[in-house]
């Protein structure tokens, strides 16, 4: 009985410290959520303007000649994979990596500490990812694509639906898909459409990369908060159960002692 009580006491202690940890991590995550979602919205605003322009450009007949729009036979794939810097964020990292199982031969450019560890790339933190890094990356990607190092380029990231729901996705960027939209031709492109298109592509890719990183980071923080909330809830339930067991064992030991004393005095 005595050993049982001691065991229960150590378990209660360890679950208690887990509860503290989840609470602290949940608090850190919730304080970051607001900033992260704001950054995400700003990034989206920026990239949506670029996407709109490139979309319009890609609907012009003459832009089909651009090397960025040429469909190629080869199957070599390059992917930018965006995952989190840290674990304990529910299924956030696992969902991205599960999606990556569909592309075992892809050339991977990882962003986020977890992704860098998994795909052994240069360490890049998702939280501190900056525009200049994105631009450098985009220029390398454009060069690689034009030199034929790979035939398709895409991004694996996580989409922010709401605080409770995020989805990992893969988005193909190169070769550019022609837009279904008719060219609205309200604007003049200087000097001409194809030159603008070719010049804007690195900017376009950098914009998409940075806005995806920001969106994914918001997902990471939100996922962590939700995960920590439910982990905290589980820890509390466990504590209740253990407390009950502990008290029962303690009560049992006392009752036994009394019975022994009474039996002793009677003898």
């Amino acid at each position: 009985m005595g050993a049982d009580i001691k065991q229960l006491r150590t378990r209660i202690k360890s679950v208690n410290s887990t509860l503290h940890l989840t609470k602290a991590m949940g608090l850190v995550a919730s304080s970051k959520i607001r900033k992260a979602t704001e950054a995400m919205l700003k990034g989206q605003e920026y990239s949506s303007a670029l996407i709109e322009t490139v979309d319009e450009l890609s609907s012009y007949e003459e832009c089909r000649k651009s090397p960025y729009m040429k469909e190629r036979e080869g199957g070599k794939i390059c992917l930018v994979v965006i995952a989190g810097d840290r674990g304990l964020a529910g299924g956030y990292n696992a969902n991205v990596f599960r999606l990556m199982r569909n592309f075992p031969d892809a050339m991977v450019i990882p962003i986020g500490k977890r992704a860098c560890e998994r795909f052994s790339g240069e360490l890049l933190y998702a939280e501190k990812f900056s525009y200049s890094l994105a631009k450098e990356m985009a220029e390398d990607i454009c060069r690689g694509f034009l030199n034929g190092e790979f035939d398709r380029f895409g991004i694996v990231a996580t989409k922010y639906n709401s605080l409770m729901s995020q989805d990992a996705y893969v988005k193909w960027i190169l070769p550019l898909q022609k837009s279904e939209k008719k060219a609205s031709s309200s604007a003049i492109f200087e000097p001409d459409e194809i030159t603008v298109l070719n010049a804007v592509i690195p900017e376009y890719i950098a914009g998409i990369i940075i806005s995806s990183v920001k969106e994914s980071f918001a997902c990471e923080v939100a996922a962590r908060r939700v995960a920590m909330d439910s982990a905290g809830k589980n820890a509390k339930e466990m504590l209740d159960d253990l407390g009950l067991q502990y008290n029962r064992a303690r009560q049992g030991a006392i009752t036994q002692e009394i019975t022994e004393i009474v039996a002793g005095s009677e003898a």
């Binding site: 604007a187 003049i188 492109f189 603008v196």
Partner: peptide
């Protein structure tokens, strides 16, 4: 290039 008020719509890199 310079842009003033009333410029026609255009896009350039």
């Amino acid at each position: 290039l310079a842009v003033l008020a009333g410029h026609i719509p255009f896009v350039s890199s």
